[in-house]
Amino acid sequence: MSEIKVIPRYSQDRGHADHDWLKTFHSFSFAMYQDFNHEKYSSLRVINEDRVAARTGFGTHSHREFEIFSYVVEGELEHKDSMGNIEVLKRGDLQLTSAGTGISHSEKAHGNKPVHFLQIWSLPSTSRLQPKYFTRHFSDDEKRDTWVRVVANVNAEGVQKDLREGSKQGEGPAPVQSPLTMYATLLRQGQSLGQMMKGSKGYVHVVMRSGYNEGAANGATVRVAGQTLREGDGAYLQVPLAGEVLVENIGDRIAEVILFDLE
């Protein structure tokens, strides 16, 4: 069986912007950062690692035909949208907006502390859908040394579809209209964790938890299919049939890792 091919996407090579109120890294082309070599990967279109200063944020703006989800790492994120949803998201929360035919929303740091979150966009398989909003909560204990499925295709096994919409009413993964699955883990030092992939592609990202760093990443260090990655780093994965992605924590602290299984 052929091995998984890993193409690193190092943190210092990502797009980067410092707007004082917002410090952000872009894994894919976004806003003023444009790189034809990193436009998207399968249905995955945006991974922004955002740090928003206290009492600031993204004012009301509009989207359509994207699946937009926020994975809160630290602090509190206040969400408001044109569907009437108002919610404060905390660590462990995941919020998913299926923009469909169009929504407007704002995302701001809530309270007196900054918020650190991953802003992720994917491309839906079906256009002109009714906009919907979902939130889920996944505790640190749930994610410790295991992969937790936090987002999955609406037709995947175990996904609750429209039955559990809004305000963390549901359990299990948030339903996305894209052909992807998103996993998250908190991997302790010396531990390893495998995940069988269903798609032919994958993407992995190591969350930059130790602090904002414009240069080569410090902090947690993992090995993914033999490739060393540090905080802020990611990698494109090309996966053979029935391939398994193995992540090993080879550093001196807990690593928070996000893995996407893509068609």
Rank of each mutant, 00 (worst) to 15 (best):
N153T: 06
A242D: 13
T97H: 02
A109T: 03
H110M: 01
R9A: 03
G202M: 01
G251Y: 13
E214M: 11
V176D: 01
H116A: 11
F138N: 12
L96P: 10
E165F: 06
Y236L: 02
S200F: 12
I103Y: 02
V239R: 11
H63K: 05
L89N: 05
R128V: 04
A17P: 01
L123Q: 11
M197H: 05
R128M: 13
E231Y: 01
D141H: 04
R253G: 13
T101Q: 02
P179T: 03
I258A: 09
F25C: 02
A255M: 04
F260V: 11
A216K: 15
L186S: 03
E171I: 06
A216N: 11
G158H: 15
G194F: 04
L89G: 02
L123M: 10
T24K: 02
F69W: 11
G172V: 07
V257M: 11
H19L: 10
G92C: 07
E65H: 04
H137S: 01
L163Y: 08
F117W: 02
Q189E: 14
G111F: 00
N48Q: 12
L262V: 11
V247M: 01
I258D: 11
E171G: 08
G15A: 12
Y212C: 09
I120L: 10
E171S: 11
W121Y: 10
R128T: 06
T56S: 14
Q130M: 02
L94N: 06
Q177H: 14
Q160L: 06
V72L: 08
L259A: 05
S178Q: 03
V239G: 08
M83G: 08
L77T: 03
Q227M: 12
K90F: 02
F66P: 00
K201S: 06
S167D: 14
D233R: 04
I103W: 02
S29M: 09
S104F: 09
V6I: 09
I68Q: 06
S27W: 03
T135N: 08
D81S: 13
A152C: 08
L246Y: 00
K161W: 13
E76M: 13
R55C: 12
A99Y: 03
T228D: 15
N249A: 01
G166A: 09
M197A: 07
G59M: 00
V239A: 09
G190W: 09
A174P: 00
R55N: 15
F25L: 01
A184S: 14
H63T: 06
A53P: 08
D13T: 13
M83I: 05
L237A: 12
E231N: 04
V115K: 01
I68V: 10
L229C: 07
N37L: 07
I7M: 06
F260H: 15
I47R: 00
